[in-house]
Nucleic acid binder design. Structure first.
Lengths: 334, 334
DNA sequence: TTGAAAGCGCTAACAG
DNA sequence: CTGTTAGCGCTTTCAA
């Protein structure tokens, strides 16, 4: 079942069929209806593989670091929702936790002539991302800074961290500690959200004249990281009265460590997370958290991507969304 | 950068390059090394699109109903792990919650000449699955019954449900209720895991001479469904002493309803789930649940798929794995 | 407005 | 063992 069969069935040329299929310029209404009829009768579907050799594949690839992180799922929803109104089909990959894997996956997407890529929270070097974007329209989600080749969508993590600190301070807390995802590379310190959150925490503490109370446990954005980080903080000579975990999963781990230490939340210690994942909203947990509106981020990414596919040389754009604080039951006045 | 460039650079024919690239029969060692050198020097990568027109795309598509369900993520891990040892690249889609979406996605995968498909917990009619499998090697995960065209991997849901009932009976429970995902279609009653779990529950109750105590709330496999189902059950004149929720998310919803009714788990009522998701394992929840080993299921699916790609006419296989019960803190002696 | 024909990058007969 | 060549199904000039 090829375009030739359809052309024969409709009694026209393959060119005509191709044009009708792509809504291209220069087809009469009667030709359109004849071709459409033939397509329907034969149940013809164009081969994306063959198309790829000449034109578009109508395929967008999304690189996801981890399917288990519900925040990424929100972003995905936003991308999917926007793409549903278009001809593009979304395919994604998951489990790209390091530079090597990311390279493999982006290569695979390029090899398959995908029309555009959405890279969610990539860890690759900026040069690598720039290079990828040079060969295919690309939108990077969750990396600060701008690039001449790719568009980017971020959440204002500095503001987000400040929201938490402001909230805790307004509740009377002064010994507010932070659990961060450890980072040393200078580029990453400027670009990665986790580093921005830590910076936002520091800045906000200083703004509240609490520079002397700054206390950071440097682990990783995992449940385990949260557990270990909280244990560190709880072992301090003077215990913090509040912990700002850099991510909800981190807060979850912290919750375990706090319970293990025989303390209660928010009675003995207040706890806030970041991401406002379903986990945070879940009743028995009910975690105060910063909401990034991943759906909105995803929708913006998809919009930018489609724009760039249609106009590859337009200037790159940087969309920065503003987070909000969702106060729940894990934070309370001191 | 095409195969022609590589051939020219290496001073051989394109055929030679193609053969070396595919480890095909009939290449001398020196030709192999010359070609490999040229490929490396030029940084050449074959176009999957062009390959698709003649041979394989080395692409496997996985259709996932919902990225948020951690059990599906486990299956995905298993598939990915097995595929990592092969040349195949995995791409997935998510959010196929109904028949229309499933049709769209499977079509999209076929259009793109993917070499094989893994369909996770599809809801499409069996005829549709059979048809898909006729045009591309397919493995169906999570649908009971056998097909002449696709291989399948399932968990023994009847045994799984029996494990829960046995456990609760051994704790002294008799009034054991079940929250099921409502199903009426006869084919689906035979094939869908949720229907099998309900059947397993019934059979086990009968086996324990508790036919008279069978009590089913028919809602859906969602948190909301669990909440509503539990409310129904708690409103009975004589309340059940234990609830077997057909899935962990259902148990979560039930947990909320139970708390709302002012009851405690497992003090007033025991609760068990199904899937042994990360949620079930999470400390504060600590839900007794049936473990399906999604990773194992995924690995089996990938193995079967690769086998079938290499030998399309071999007989279809049905792999059925045996679940285990993970007892935690939500079930206790009456 | 319509169609003929070239060619996208690759694989697989087939011939040497 | 190596190379020539004819397509795979589609899009896109370029003429008619």
């Amino acid at each position: 079942m090829t375009i030739v069969d359809v052309a024969r069935h409709a009694g026209v040329s393959t060119t005509a069929v191709s044009k009708v299929l792509r809504n291209a310029y220069g087809t009469s209404p009667q030709m359109r209806s004849r071709v459409s009829a033939a397509v329907d009768e034969l149940g013809y579907r164009p081969s994306a593989a063959a198309r790829a050799l000449r034109g578009r594949t109508w395929t967008v690839g999304v690189m996801l670091p981890d399917v288990r992180n519900p925040f990424f799922a929100d972003i995905l929803d936003g991308v999917a929702e926007h793409l549903d109104d278009t001809e593009y089909q979304l395919f994604m990959t998951s489990g790209c936790d390091d530079v090597t894997n990311e390279a493999r996956v982006t290569e695979a997407m390029i090899d398959r002539s995908m029309d555009g890529l959405v890279l969610i929270a990539p860890v690759s070097a900026k040069e690598r991302l720039t290079e990828v974007a040079r060969s295919v329209p690309t939108v990077v989600v969750g990396r600060h800074g701008s690039s001449p080749t790719y568009d980017s969508v971020t959440d204002d993590d500095i503001t987000g961290a400040a929201l938490v600190v402001d909230h805790l301070v307004s509740l009377g807390h002064r010994r507010i500690a932070h659990i961060e995802h450890h980072e040393t590379d200078p580029v990453r310190l400027a670009e990665m959200p986790n580093a921005q959150r830590a910076r936002g925490y520091r800045d906000a503490m200083i703004a509240h004249n609490l520079a002397g109370e700054i206390d950071i446990a440097s682990t990783s954005y995992t449940q385990q990281g949260g557990y270990l980080g909280a244990r560190q903080l709880l072992a301090r000579r003077i215990r913090p009265t509040a912990i700002f975990a850099g991510a909800d999963v981190v807060a979850l781990g912290a919750l375990e460590a706090i319970a293990e230490a025989g303390l209660t939340v928010p009675g003995d210690i207040s706890l806030a997370g970041y991401d406002n994942s379903a986990l945070a909203a879940f009743g028995p947990i009910s975690l105060t958290s910063v909401d990034q509106d991943g759906r909105q981020m995803g929708a913006n990414a998809a919009r930018l991507l489609v724009e760039r596919i249609n106009q590859r040389d337009r200037r790159t754009a940087q969309v920065k969304l503003t987070p909000t604080l969702v106060v729940r039951r894990t934070t309370a006045a001191i």
